[in-house]
Design a protein around this nucleic acid. Structure first.
Length: 479
RNA sequence: GGCACCGUAGCCAAGUUGGUAAGGCAAGGGACUGCAAAUCCCUCAUACCCCGGUUCGAAUCCGGGCGGUGCCUCCA
C-alpha cells in the first residue's frame, strides 16, 4: 500500500508523490517561545515526530525542519515585564521546551532554525515581493497586498469578501487594505536593540508569517513535500505563508499540508483566556512522559483528542504492558540460553503496522496492531514456544514500538523508574513497602495467611499491588 | 453570518475511493494462585445521531434534519 496523506489543500486523502524520488522534505511550524509548552504543543510535536520516525522506517530519506519562533510581540512584552532581554528570555524557554520534549521522547529535527538567525533571508523575500508588486512599504512597515495574490484563501477555503468584513486594522498600522498583513514591522520606541534589525525600510523586525517562508525555502527549497502544524495555523498563518512564498517565487510552496487537531479539556479547546490550559511540565508531575505520548498517539492526529485522567491512565497501562511483556520475553530467552543474533522481523505484523502508518499516519490503528503483536508474544511465551520464534516476535515488537517512539528504555530499568516515580508522586516510601513485604513473606512461610492477607490489604489501601512470583514478591503502584 | 470538522457498544477509539463492524478500558466466565496480582483463553454492537435517496449491497456515496466542536483576532 502506498503512503497516503490527508491534504488540507485538497481536503482529501491522496497518494504521496515526492518532489524528488526517495526523499521527503518536511517543514513543521514549531513553537513561539514565551511560556512553558502546553499539552497542545505536545500533540503537535508528538504527531509529527511519529510521522517522521515512520517515514524513515519506511525507507524515505527525510529532511525534517522544525523552527523556533523566537521573536514576536508576546516575547518582547513578556520579557519586558520581567526586565529581561527578549533573546535571552526566548532562549530560556527553548531550553525548557527541549526538556519537555525529551520526556516525551521527541527526537530533535534535522534542522531547528530560529527566526532571529534568518533575518537576511526574510528581507530578501520581502524585497522580491515589493519588486513584483505584491508588497509595499508604508511608514517603516511593509505589508503584503492580499488582493494581488489571486489564490489567496485556497488553503483555508475562504473568499476575500467573507474575510473583508472580519478584517481589522490595528491602531498605528498603515495598510492600504484591511486584509493586508505585515511582512516587516518598524521598530517602536523603547524596543530593545536585540530585537531590531536594519532593513531597506528602516530598523524593525519581521512579521510572524515571513519567517516560515524564509526558513522553509532556505532548508528545503522553493517547493517541498510536506508542511505541517496545528489546525489553528491554517488561517491565517499558513494561508499567508502560501501567499508570500508563491507570490515571490511563482512556484507552489508545499504539495501536502498536514494539520493536527486540538487537545481539548472537557471537550473544549484549551485557551489561556479560559484558564483551562495544562503545561507539559504540570502533567509530567503526575504522569510518565511515555504515558502522555501513548495517550497522544491513541487518537488519529487529525481528530480532536480530549484530555481526561482516565484516558492517560489507560495509556499508562499500555506502556506498562509493553515493558512487562518485553521484560518477560528477555527473561524467557535468557532462561533458554538463546544467543542467536538479531532475528528477522515477523512479516505479518510488520505489514499490518505499516498499512496503518501508510494510511495517513494512523497511529491509533498502528498502536492497536502493535498491541496485538504483544498479545501474541505473551501467548507464545506462556505456551513455551521455541526461543527463535519468541525472539523474532520480541524483536518485531521492539522495532515497531520504537517507530512510535514508545518503549525506548531497557524494560527492567523502565519498570523500576516508573515505579519509583509513581511511588514518589503518591508519597509511598519504597523502604516501607519492602519492610511490609518482608513481614508478609515471613508470615507466609509460617502459613499464617491471615497476617499475610492483612498486610496485602494494608498495602492495597495504600495504593500498592503485590505480585507473588517464583522469584519472590514484587510490587507496583496502582494508578 | 461565512468556512471546515465531528457524532460508532457503559467509556475511549479504528474503519468513510461501498461488500457485510479493529483494538483498549470496564464487565462476566475459565486456566494459574494458599488468596491475589500479572499473564493467557472465552464471552461482550443484527449495529454505526435521525429521516429519505442511489445501489445487488452503505457506518462508508447523495439530499435534508438534529446535536457538538473549531476557524474567521494571537494560538499547536
Amino acid at each position: 500500500m502506498p503512503l497516503r496523506l490527508f491534504n488540507t489543500l485538497t481536503n482529501e486523502k491522496q497518494d504521496f508523490t515526492p518532489v524528488r524520488p526517495g526523499r521527503i522534505g518536511v517543514y513543521v511550524c514549531g513553537i513561539t517561545v514565551y511560556d512553558l509548552a502546553h499539552i497542545g504543543h505536545a500533540r503537535m510535536l508528538t504527531a509529527f515526530d511519529a510521522a517522521v520516525r515512520a517515514l524513515r522506517w519506511m525507507g524515505w530519506q527525510v529532511n525534517f525542519v522544525r523552527n523556533w519562533t523566537d521573536v514576536d510581540d508576546k516575547i518582547i512584552r513578556r520579557a519586558g515585564e520581567r526586565g529581561e532581554d527578549p533573546q535571552q528570555f526566548a532562549a530560556r524557554y527553548i531550553d525548557e521546551c527541549r526538556r519537555d520534549m525529551q520526556a516525551l521522547n521527541i527526537l530533535p529535527a534535522d534542522v531547528e532554525p530560529k527566526a532571529t538567525e534568518n533575518i537576511p533571508e526574510m528581507i530578501e523575500i520581502i524585497s522580491k515581493l515589493i519588486e513584483r508588486g505584491h508588497a509595499y512599504a508604508s511608514a517603516g512597515d511593509v505589508y503584503f497586498s492580499v488582493r494581488s495574490f489571486p489564490d489567496y484563501g485556497k488553503l483555508s477555503k475562504r473568499n476575500l469578501d467573507d474575510l473583508q468584513s472580519g478584517a481589522r486594522v490595528e491602531p498605528g498600522e498603515q495598510k492600504h487594505d484591511p486584509l493586508d498583513f505585515a511582512l516587516w514591522k518598524a521598530a517602536k520606541p523603547g524596543e530593545p536593540a536585540s530585537v531590531t534589525w536594519q532593513s531597506p525600510w528602516g530598523p524593525g523586525r519581521p512579521g510572524w508569517h515571513i519567517e516560515c517562508s524564509a526558513m522553509s525555502q532556505k532548508y528545503l527549497g522553493v517547493t517541498f513535500d510536506v508542511h505541517g502544524g496545528g489546525k489553528d495555523l491554517v488561517f491565517p498563518h499558513h494561508e499567508n505563508e502560501i501567499a508570500q512564498s508563491e507570490a515571490a517565487s511563482g512556484q507552489e510552496l508545499a504539495h501536502y499540508w498536514l494539520h493536527n487537531g486540538f487537545v481539548t479539556l472537557d471537550a473544549e479547546k484549551m485557551s489561556k483566556s479560559m484558564g483551562n490550559f495544562k503545561t507539559i511540565r504540570d502533567l509530567l508531575a503526575h504522569w510518565d512522559g511515555e504515558a502522555l505520548r501513548a495517550f497522544l498517539l491513541s487518537t488519529h492526529y487529525r481528530h480532536p483528542i480530549n484530555f481526561t485522567e482516565s484516558a492517560v491512565a489507560d495509556a499508562d497501562r499500555r506502556v506498562e504492558y509493553f515493558y512487562e511483556t518485553l521484560a518477560k520475553g528477555d527473561a524467557y530467552l535468557t532462561q533458554k540460553k538463546f544467543t542467536a543474533g538479531e532475528p528477522a522481523p515477523v512479516d505479518e505484523h510488520v505489514a499490518a503496522f505499516r498499512d496503518a502508518m501508510d494510511d495517513d499516519f494512523n497511529t491509533a490503528d498502528a498502536m492497536a496492531r502493535v498491541e496485538r503483536l504483544y498479545h501474541v508474544l505473551n501467548a507464545s511465551i506462556d505456551a513455551k514456544a521455541p526461543p527463535a520464534e519468541v525472539a523474532a516476535l520480541l524483536h518485531t515488537a521492539r522495532t515497531l514500538s520504537h517507530v512510535l517512539g514508545l518503549a525506548p528504555r531497557a524494560p527492567l530499568d523502565a519498570i523500576r523508574e516508573r515505579r519509583t516515580l509513581a511511588a514518589a508522586r503518591k508519597g509511598i516510601k519504597p523502604a516501607d513497602v519492602e519492610q511490609l513485604i518482608a513481614e508478609r513473606i515471613a508470615a507466609r512461610k509460617a502459613k499464617d495467611f491471615k497476617t499475610a492477607d492483612a498486610i496485602r490489604m494494608k498495602l492495597t489501601d495504600a495504593g500498592v499491588e503485590l505480585r507473588d512470583g517464583s522469584q519472590g514478591t514484587d510490587w507496583r503502584v496502582l494508578l
